[in-house]
Design a protein around this nucleic acid. Sequence first.
DNA 1: ATTGACGTTCCACTAGGCGGAACGGGGCGG
DNA 2: CCGCCCCGTTCCGCCTAGTGGAACGTCAAT
Lengths: 258, 258
Amino acid sequence: MAGDTSGQTITAVERTALVMSAFAQADSQHLGVTEISNNLDISKAVVHRILNTLRSLDYIAVDPATRRYMLGPAALELGLAFLRHVDVRDIAKPMLEELSAKTQETATLSIRSGTHRLYIDQVTPSREVKMTVLLGRSFPLHAGGSSKAILAHLAPEDIEDYMSDVVLEPLTELTITDPDLLMKDLARIRRLGYASSVNERQPGAASVAAPVFDHSGWPVAAISLCGPAERFQDQADEAAALIVAAGRQLSERMGYRG
Amino acid sequence: MAGDTSGQTITAVERTALVMSAFAQADSQHLGVTEISNNLDISKAVVHRILNTLRSLDYIAVDPATRRYMLGPAALELGLAFLRHVDVRDIAKPMLEELSAKTQETATLSIRSGTHRLYIDQVTPSREVKMTVLLGRSFPLHAGGSSKAILAHLAPEDIEDYMSDVVLEPLTELTITDPDLLMKDLARIRRLGYASSVNERQPGAASVAAPVFDHSGWPVAAISLCGPAERFQDQADEAAALIVAAGRQLSERMGYRG
DNA sequence: ATTGACGTTCCACTAGGCGGAACGGGGCGG
DNA sequence: CCGCCCCGTTCCGCCTAGTGGAACGTCAAT
C-alpha cells in the first residue's frame, strides 16, 4: 500500500513529506533541526531550508525564543479539509460496484443516524432475481447485518443504553429480540469482524456486513453484501471475506488508523 | 506577516505546499493535474511528480477510476497533530458551551493563519433554526466578526500591509471593501473591545466576536457568537458583553497579561 | 572564559529536477 | 460505432537549482 515507488518522484518533496510526518508523529510539539536531521538522515542544511520554506506558507511555525519548530495553522487547514471532503458515499461507490460484480449480488452502504441506520447507496447485479433495498429507509440497530455491524462496535455504554432504551422490536419472525442473545451475537461479530444475518430484517433475505470507522474510531457506517437467502448462503464465506476487506479499506480512507 | 521570504528556501517544497493548499481551499474534493497546473502556473509534469510523490506517503490519494487526486489520510494526521498541541481549543471548549447555552446561539472559535483565519471549533444550540459554520474553511481577515476582531489588533504595520497587499474581496454584498471604511471600523472595534458583523461574510448571518491574545500580546484567535441575522440583532448587546468577557478570560488563560 | 551544541549560511559541484513534446487511453459527441 | 479531444503520464536533454560538508554566530551551561 503505502510507500509505493511507482512512477516519477521528487526527492525534495519526499523529504518534505517525511519532515511533516515527523511532526505529526512526534510526542512533543517542538522539534529542532538537528533532531530531525538525525532521525531522518537528511543534512541539517536541507532540513533547515525545508522548514524555512514551509514556515513562509504557515505549514510550520517557529518559536523565535527557542528557535524550535512546530506545526502551523495551515497543517490544521489540511486536516479539516480532509474531513470536509470525505464523503463515505463517493469513496464507497467504486467498492460497491466491485463487490457486486465479483459476487453477482447486491452491495449496500448504510450510515448510522442515532438509534437507527439507513441505506444511502446500493449497487445491484444484472440478473433477474436479485435484492433491492430502499434507499433512505431507516431501520433499528438490532436487526439485519449492517445494523448489527454498527451496533457491535459502539461504545459499551452506548450498547447498554440502546438495549435498555429501545424495545427490541421484531421486524420478522427471526429478528433477535432477546437482549442476552443479541449481546452474544454482537460479541461474535466483534470477534469475526463482520456480521451476518438471515431473515432477520427481511424475510427471504440474507447478508454479511462490515463496520466502517471514521477517523475517531467510531462506526459511522456499514457496508454489506446481500441477496436471496437460499442462494446467498452458499457463498456467504466468500462474501464475508470480501466485505471485511472492503470495510477495512473504506475505514482507512475515512481517516481511520487501525 | 505571512509570506516571509527571509532565509533560504526550496522552490520544489514551496510548490508542494501550494499544491497541498490548493486541495485545502478547493470546494470539491477532487482535483486534476491540469486544473492544478493552470491555477498555480506550474507545469503539468511537475504537478504530476509532486502528486505522485505525496501519494506514496499517503498525503494524497488517487481515485484509480477517474485518475483524479484528493487529500489522503496523512493530511488528517497532520491536522490532528496540530490540534493535539494547541491548547486554545481545549481551554475554549467549555466557554463555547456556556456561551451557546446562555444565548441559544452558535459559539465559534477561530485561529489566525497568515492573512486568513479558520474555524477550529463550534458549539451549536439545540433548536431548529441555527447557524453552523464549516470547520477548517478559511476566510480573509477583513470579512466577518471574528476576522475583524483579529485584524483590528494586529500591529499597525501589519494592518497596513494587509490593506495594501490583499485585495478586499467581497464575500457578500455587504462586505466592507473600502479601506478607509474598514480602518474606521477597526478603530471602533478596538475602542469597544469587540467586532460585530451583519451579512458581511455570509448572507443572513450576524455575529459578535472578541479577539484572543497569546502571552506575547498578539491576537492569535477569535471567539464569537453568531446566528440568523434578524433574530440575533435583538440580543446583540447582551451577546457582545458575554463575548468580551469570554475573550478576556480566554486570553488570560493563554498567558496574556492585560 | 571555555566548551559544546545548535541554528544558520556559504560555496562549488553536479545530481536532480525541469518542461516542452510526445504517448496512450478513456469519454463524449457525432 | 468511430474518431476526436482532452487528460494523465512519461520521455529526454539542458542546465538550473538543490546539495552537503564546512564554517560561522549565538546561546547556555560549565
